[in-house]
Design a protein around this nucleic acid. Sequence first.
DNA 1: CGCCATACGTTACGGTTGGTATCGGAATAG
DNA 2: CTATTCCGATACCAACCGTAACGTATGGCG
Lengths: 194, 194
Amino acid sequence: MTVERRSSGRPRDPRIESAALEAARAALLDEGWTGLSMAGVAARAGTTKPALYRRWPSLPHLVYEAAFPDEVALEFHLDSGDLRTDIAGIARGIRDLLTSPVPAAALPGLLAEFSTQPELHASLLARFADGFAMLDERLNRAAADGEARKDVTAEDLLRLAIGATLLGVLLGPETLDDAWVERLAETLWRGIAA
Amino acid sequence: MTVERRSSGRPRDPRIESAALEAARAALLDEGWTGLSMAGVAARAGTTKPALYRRWPSLPHLVYEAAFPDEVALEFHLDSGDLRTDIAGIARGIRDLLTSPVPAAALPGLLAEFSTQPELHASLLARFADGFAMLDERLNRAAADGEARKDVTAEDLLRLAIGATLLGVLLGPETLDDAWVERLAETLWRGIAA
DNA sequence: CGCCATACGTTACGGTTGGTATCGGAATAG
DNA sequence: CTATTCCGATACCAACCGTAACGTATGGCG
């Protein structure tokens, strides 16, 4: 997401980047998406708009990187040996990721940007790529063991889990408690079982 | 959504309301959510901003009513006698509603507004209320007949179907073809079966 | 018929934002 | 020492939102 780095010249102050991301997270938490502005984030970070525009092409890009930094990946634990348990783990991981305060605050606005900024959209999808591949492999194993239908794809299953969770985040995250996760996992597991 | 109507004084020109809604739909289609503006819609409708602000409190309210007019309700056909068929009908109805061009263009932006405009959010939910009640009754019947688990709620099932469809709309409506609807229905049906 | 309330179009305003430009000065590579 | 790029500061433009005037039109009600 960061703009390409030139070789010569005065190097960028690395503290500005982290300060801006942290400022964006803080602003997101106590002003919400609508209260965000480039000038506001810059002031919070102790710098100025031009410095931010040198690093991110627009406010949504900055917010995206602040809310979904590279380190935040969706880590599945698909080694319990029990398909039902693994699916519950997936559902819980998605719920935990999407309902944590900063992503939950950023998501509604970011989703609106995705329709006009394909790069952001692609970037977030890539964040799920690892989990996607792991789940795909897990489903193949389950199909081979006769635990799951052969025509169930990781894409379809993930879309169900992510979509249901996303809708919950948009309409009221308080309903996404552990009992909901368990009900979701139960339905998904039964839904894909052979 | 329309502002309360006074009794005396010059009556509102009813043509402005319909012209504005139609203009909003047209603007939505060929400029997208980000290209919308109150002045643009007013110009397209052959009127002016103050006339629009007399009718809707903000642009999102106008767009919401344009994209999801009162007449557009989610009609389920839950009388096929076969639970599997009924669920497929639900999935198809949701897909058809959310992927039609105007709602698909309006949804990303509207979703972002929902987080700060609870009334819009509540209004859209009410649009699903009828279908929700019908499905609830249908699930009770299925549970009584031993076709469905007793602990499956209409809310959970609808959230899965709507969420998966919504995610598809946000990420690329072209994947939501009839085959996808069938796969979704199959998984949901198996997921809730007793 | 006349009054009053409200609508209408037109125009303009204040405030906010996004994003760019310009400037002198500072830091680094070669 | 020079070229290059960054820095903060400030200014700037265009667009937009929402509101406020105006003078005028149009209806209900007494």
